Amino acid sequence: PKDEAKKKVKEAIKRGDEETAKRIAKKYNLDWDDAKREADEER
């Protein structure tokens, strides 16, 4: 599900692992900028 994928993307971003985050986002066709902004807001 997309929500689960987005959570994984945000967790990867918070760990500083943007490569993984981008790969997950691409795989699930998520909006990378959107997920990154959300992760930054939660930090």
Rank of each mutant, 00 (worst) to 15 (best):
E38C: 12
E41M: 13
A25I: 03
A21D: 01
K27A: 12
D33R: 02
K36D: 03
D31K: 01
P1N: 14
K7T: 11
K7Q: 12
I24Y: 00
K6W: 14
K7A: 11
E11T: 03
V9A: 03
R15Q: 09
A35N: 04
K27H: 10
K7D: 07
D40L: 14
K22C: 13
A39E: 06
W32P: 01
D33K: 05
N29L: 05
V9F: 11
R15D: 07
E41Y: 11
A35P: 03
Y28C: 15
E4P: 03
K26Y: 04
E19V: 09
E41D: 10
K36T: 07
R15V: 06
D40T: 11
K10I: 15
K10T: 07
W32R: 00
K10G: 04
L30R: 00
D31N: 10
E19L: 08
A12V: 02
K8E: 10
K7L: 11
A12G: 01
E41T: 09
L30H: 02
D3Q: 12
K6P: 02
A12M: 11
R37A: 12
E41A: 13
I24G: 00
G16C: 12
E38F: 06
R23A: 14
R23I: 11
K10R: 12
E41H: 09
K27P: 00
A39Q: 05
A21N: 00
K36N: 06
R43V: 13
D3V: 11
A35R: 01
K8T: 08
R43M: 15
E42L: 07
A25S: 04
G16T: 01
D33I: 08
Y28V: 15
K8Y: 07
G16S: 02
A5S: 04
K6R: 14
T20E: 15
G16I: 01
T20I: 08
K27G: 02
G16M: 03
K14M: 14
R23D: 10
R43H: 11
Y28N: 15
D33C: 14
I13R: 01
E18L: 15
A25F: 00
V9T: 03
E41I: 11
E18F: 15
R37V: 07
P1M: 14
T20V: 09
D34Y: 05
V9P: 00
Y28H: 15
A12R: 01
Y28P: 15
A12Y: 10
N29I: 02
E42H: 06
E18R: 04
K8R: 14
A12D: 01
E18G: 03
K36C: 09
A5E: 04
A39P: 03
V9E: 00
D3I: 12
K14I: 13
W32D: 02
P1A: 14
K26M: 08
E42T: 08
A35W: 03
K2M: 14
Y28R: 15
N29R: 03
I24V: 05
R15N: 12
W32K: 00
D31L: 02
P1D: 14
V9M: 13
K26W: 02
T20K: 06
D3S: 12
A12H: 06
R43N: 12
D33Y: 06
K10F: 12
K26A: 12
N29V: 02
E38V: 06
K6M: 15
K6V: 11
A39I: 10
K14L: 15
K8P: 01
K7F: 07
V9G: 00
K27C: 15
A39K: 03
A39H: 04
D34Q: 13
K26S: 08
K14V: 08
K2N: 12
K14T: 08
A35C: 15
K22V: 05
D40E: 13
E4Y: 11
A35E: 09
R23P: 00
T20M: 12
R23K: 13
P1F: 12
D17S: 02
A21R: 00
A12W: 04
T20F: 09
K7C: 14
A25Q: 01
E11G: 02
L30W: 05
D3C: 13
K6Y: 12
K10D: 04
A5D: 02
D31G: 02
K6T: 06
A12N: 03
D40G: 08
K22R: 14
L30S: 02
T20Y: 11
W32T: 01
Y28F: 10
D17T: 00
K36E: 05
E11I: 04
K36H: 07
K6L: 15
E41R: 11
K26P: 13
D34H: 06
K10W: 08
G16F: 03
E18T: 11
N29P: 15
E38A: 09
